[in-house]
Design a binder for these strands. Structure first.
Lengths: 110, 110
DNA sequence: TTGACATACTGTACGATATACAGTAATATA
DNA sequence: TATATTACTGTATATCGTACAGTATGTCAA
């Protein structure tokens, strides 16, 4: 593997899991896939459709999100997602651990 | 999957990749597997042997670490690892991206 | 002196996720 | 009316952290 490809791959591994937290934290307000994609992008988290949509489905199948089809203003139907009660519990735990972990690593890097 | 198991699993995914950074950053000084294990543990990063040893081998096979067997003080031979020139370059890039990423996520969580 | 525990490593298999790739289709706009 | 954007579904793949199994030496207390 080439040097740059190696770095890209390690960054991918670094990102793993963070997207789940990001998505859960954003879905206290209802959003559909595409609007969420744009919202994350605005906050500096560039995500591909092929990453986000499977993630939303997985989080819902795990009971952390709820969704339903809805038609707003005669536009095409959209699947709206929102965090579930279980999702809130899980998010709280993840936040806590995430803070502890980043702090530990930060100390090592500096 | 149960709630707690789910959280554990998500934390596992969150940790992914961070260990690589941690190890690279610690190996500016030579260490062998076991001493590194203890050093990481002292800094708050609990790692299993079955995680660290395969990682060291992988990082070496990727050219980011160098190692050699050595006998010190008549003790049993140990494999000493140290970061390579390529490893230093990669680490610098990873550090930069890691900072940017954690900052982005941190903003979302707060 | 022997049994337990810490030290120090190798090897292989597996599961979960992020991404890639492919496809469908409606809506806006130029 | 052609093209870009919006908005999704479905499946396959590579990678890593971990689990599990195994080998073997050094140390220290009972």
């Amino acid at each position: 593997m080439e040097n740059d490809e190696l770095v890209q791959n390690m960054l991918l591994e670094l990102r793993r899991g963070t997207l789940s937290i990001a998505v859960l934290s954003q879905l206290s307000m209802e959003e559909y896939g595409y609007s969420l994609l744009k919202a994350l992008s605005e906050k500096g988290l560039e995500v591909d459709q092929s990453t986000l949509y499977p993630l939303l489905r997985r989080l819902e199948s795990q009971g952390l999100l709820q969704s339903d089809w809805r038609v707003v203003d005669d536009a095409r139907p959209r699947r709206y997602y929102v965090i579930s009660a279980q999702g809130k519990t899980v998010l709280a735990k993840l936040k806590k651990e995430w803070s502890a972990m980043t702090e530990t690593i930060q100390k090592m890097l500096s």
